[in-house]
Design a protein around this nucleic acid. Structure first.
Length: 106
DNA sequence: CAGCTGACAATAA
DNA sequence: GTTATTGCCAGCT
């Protein structure tokens, strides 16, 4: 990777963009793939500052608890559930994602 | 140049 | 078991 772009952000975009449909990744997990296990917050921040042209599947990025962030939604809180459901993600009774079943790991 | 903020995570009480 | 606090790294003002 000769081009570093924005540096850390670019790295996050690459990881998130590589998340296959039907799978989800955690902020801390992505941060760890980049090489900064303590920058879980930066990953989330990268999503927030992520240009829409990249079409990053932010909905596939969830917390370690399997809970999605309340404010990252594209349009409405119900949208993310619909998207993930369309991707093949299964939700539990409490509205959290089945991490054991959809946690993306290389 | 220095300090603050931020879509999280882990540990302690 | 739940709730609160601290720690982390990188960008932005």
């Amino acid at each position: 990777m000769a081009d570093a772009g924005e540096g850390f952000f670019k790295r996050v975009y690459e990881i998130v963009a590589l998340i296959p449909a039907g799978k989800v990744a955690t902020y801390g997990g992505i941060a760890r793939m980049i090489g900064s296990p303590g920058s879980a917050r930066i990953v989330g921040w990268a999503m927030r500052s992520a240009p829409k042209g990249l079409k990053l599947p932010c909905h596939r990025v969830v917390r370690t608890t399997g809970e999605l962030c309340p404010s990252y939604v594209f349009g409405d809180s119900e949208i993310q559930r619909s998207i993930l459901d369309a991707e093949g993600i299964t939700f539990r009774e409490d509205g959290t994602i089945d991490m054991e079943r959809h946690l993306w790991q290389v």
